[in-house]
Amino acid sequence: MEFFLQQLLNAVSLGGIYALLALGLAVVFSIVALINFAHGELMTVAGYVLFVCILYAVPLPIAVVAAIGAAAVAAAATERLAFRPMRRADPTSLMLTSFAVSAILKVLFQNGISARPKPVPLPPELSGTLTFGPVRLGTVPLASILVTCLSLAALTLFLKRTVMGKAMRAAAEDFQVLRLMGIRANRVIAAAFALSGMLAGISAALWVAQRGSVDPLMGFVPVLKAFVASVIGGLGSLSGAVAGGFALGIAEVLFQAYLPEAALPFRDAFVLGVVILILLWRPDGLIPAKTGRRS
């Protein structure tokens, strides 16, 4: 029972991180059709800001806010410098641009900071477990789930209640019409990138809390997973991204917990194999994105 609950907790917290990352990818993809390979580097930026803040004994909440802000600024900066000049390019060129940006940023991190992992010590009250009657559960996964839920709720409010949020949803369905309504395209796009950066920053904080260190390749693996999650959910679909993220996280943890010993090294291959079966069944993902296009 305790084992199962702990695994479930791990699954949901990991799925939450994937969901936040996939959401960040989906927000940008739905508006500018960019599959952003540099999303992982946004996580890395947030990770290093967190590292520096904690090194200089900045209180944790401020450090986390600074990290999220830094990722948002970094996202807006990549948009301004790399993607805005490419506004009219086709999706493949955009994706390759982000691929190149990602490679360049990795080399810069390796040379500017360090190729080796830097430890990020967490305050002791976060590293223990909480006891609920007979079961003990890890604090970090619990906090992670809480943060994920709060983020998702805040994002939903933002998208449904604010003008900018509504503009973003409208842009995802038909960008040209949105522009005809008098909304400034550059502002919506910049805001979408900043939002995706914030989401990357939040996931980075959660990821670092579980790992305890940052390195230049930190964002690489989780963002690869988030790509996969966003495809399972349906590229560019926000609810699909959340569904895909949780599905992938849960699948990974369950396979990890219940695969026989000999098959464990192949866990990711099993998980992705299942993903591919899902895609064969539903090529457009679980919850396909809506677009208003005529032939």
Partner: peptide
Amino acid sequence: RLSTGSAAIGTLAFLII
């Protein structure tokens, strides 16, 4: 079977697998 964007990510999945 996949659309252009999804297919690119599908190939990424093959890389990892």
